[in-house]
Amino acid sequence: MEDELIIGLYFSRSEAAITETEKKYGGYLLKIAMNILQSREDSEECVSDTYLKVWNVIPPERPLKFLPFLGKITRNLSIDRYDKGKAKKRGGGEAALIFDELEDCIRAGSNIEKEYEDGLVAESISDFLRNQKEENRIVFVRRYWYADSVFSISERYGMSESKVKTILFRTRNKLKIHLEKEGMM
């Protein structure tokens, strides 16, 4: 079913909206949650929380792009749950590795903790990504937005793992320079 029609079901307060969302995007959302939480049980709860959240915010919200709208909610709920939950205690799984990698983008020794208006850093990262080669941008987003493992990215795009790691390494370094230039680091 088209996204517009599913959103229409939310507006008409039909519970079929949730069924249709689950049918179309359940797997996509579960993968995002699983990547971060590494636990099927926690991830399923996160995804069902996503459906409830969407049910509560549409209306009045009318998302223009339903897939990222859903994904962002699941991702945020998963990060919240990660902070509170078992994944962190178990050693963190993929999320802990990702945090380690992202340390590369943070200037060493910097103690400056600047506050930025909501979304300003994200906007700058979006601009940066839009100026990257498509392949590099997508690999970066698969790793640091979807939290895919390096192996999974390499399989998805038929690349070697070392190529994926090289792309990620170079893009992280470029991002660090970009954020420094923008005064965000």
């Binding site: 994904g71 990262i125 979006s126 990504l129």
Partner: peptide, 9 residues
Amino acid sequence: IGLIGDDII
């Protein structure tokens, strides 16, 4: 990074 543009995601 979670808040980047919908088009990129």
